[in-house]
């Protein structure tokens, strides 16, 4: 059995390319009625405010971006000047990027190895957290058992446990009790999954519990069990929420340094790119002009993921359910 949300409500003004759109969310692009709504909503003031926010939020990052192409002396020290001067005296160099990607690290000169490590760490963790958190969130939202709400509140409260306090007990457990070899991906996968779960469950619970009860009741009447409801209804309907969690989970793990420092063993076999880039400025920071370039080398993948997952932020997934 399937519940297919009807497409008529699913108007998407952002053009989702037809080829990418899966069947369930095919948008009727050009309902003239909707166009009128849109013109009213996006007033001139709103556009102006949006532009201001976008500019204010981007200028600092843009400054870093410009800096990353400036020679060392222009970036730091008394001979440096503001990054905006780059446009008048026009001194740009790729050297910083070359140094970041090619300079010899203490473990390996090969940055691509760390890149692969980062991906090998992030991808499984994101999958683990998404699946486990959505299972738990579903049961906390729609299961029937004693202490359900108390349990959920407890899980939510765990978000406050500072990571730093959990590292020593966890490392002891991994190396002494479970005998997971140090410097393996396994330790990092498990640790990151643990730390990602409370927020994941909390985010998804909000979304899953707002799925109209009628949808689930209808499925139950049709004889569907929890597993069927979970995989066939809950997950497809939660795609936007899953996509946002995926983006952030990916990001947090990608940018993590703390967990990596403790569990990766620091070798090029396992260590993620953050660990390599953290030492790029040298033992005493005398090469800190490389940091801007390093920051942009490591931001590429998260941005690609962000663009890639955006097409799952679609409108009207619940429309059909409401009518039912």
């Amino acid at each position: 059995m399937t519940v297919t949300p009807t497409p008529d409500g699913a108007t998407q003004k952002t053009r989702v390319r037809k080829s990418q759109t899966n069947k369930e969310v095919t948008g009727d692009d050009a309902a003239p009625m909707m166009r009128r709504v849109k013109t009213k909503l996006t007033s001139r003031w709103a556009t102006a405010a949006a532009v201001i926010i976008a500019v204010v939020w981007t200028v600092p990052t843009f400054g870093l971006f410009v800096s990353s192409f400036r020679p060392a002396a222009k970036q730091v020290g008394p001979r440096s000047d503001g990054w905006w001067n780059a446009f008048t005296d026009w001194q740009f160099t790729f050297k910083n990027y070359v140094d970041v990607t090619a300079s010899a690290g203490s473990q390996s000169a090969n940055l691509s190895q760390y890149f692969v490590n980062s991906i090998a760490i992030v991808v499984p963790v994101t999958v683990f957290v998404l699946v486990l958190a959505s299972m738990a969130a579903y049961i906390f939202a729609w299961g029937k058992f004693k202490g359900r709400d108390a349990g959920f509140i407890f899980v939510f409260t765990l978000q406050i446990v500072p990571l730093q306090m959990a590292l020593i007990p966890l490392l002891t457990l991994f190396t002494q009790v479970l005998q997971i070899p140090p410097g393996s991906y396994a330790q990092l996968w498990i640790a990151h999954t643990m730390f990602g779960l409370p927020l994941g469950i909390f985010l998804l619970h909000n979304f899953i519990s707002e799925i109209p009860g009628e949808v689930i009741e209808a499925a139950k009447v049709d004889g569907a069990g929890h597993t069927t409801i979970f995989w066939r209804i809950i997950l497809p309907l939660s795609v936007p929420a899953l996509a946002s969690l995926a983006i952030f989970q990916f990001l947090w793990v990608w940018n993590d340094l703390l967990v990596a420092l403790v569990f990766s063993g620091g070798t090029a076999d396992v260590a993620p790119i953050t660990q390599r880039l953290a030492e790029i400025s040298g033992t005493r920071g005398n090469k800190d002009y490389l940091n801007p370039a390093a920051a942009f080398v490591s931001i590429i993948v998260p941005l690609l993921v962000f663009f890639g997952l955006q097409r799952y932020f679609v409108r009207g997934l619940l429309a059909g359910g409401l009518k039912g």
């Binding site: 952002t14 849109k38 940091n291 920051a295 962000f306």
Partner: peptide
């Protein structure tokens, strides 16, 4: 919402989240 270039506009404000902490400090 529904503006032209929504994806890019979103990416601009999302970027600070995606930048590494060292990067944010220098910024």
């Amino acid at each position: 919402d529904k503006a032209r270039g929504e994806k890019v506009l979103k990416a601009l404000v999302f970027m600070p989240m995606a930048i590494s902490f060292v990067g944010a400090g220098i910024i």
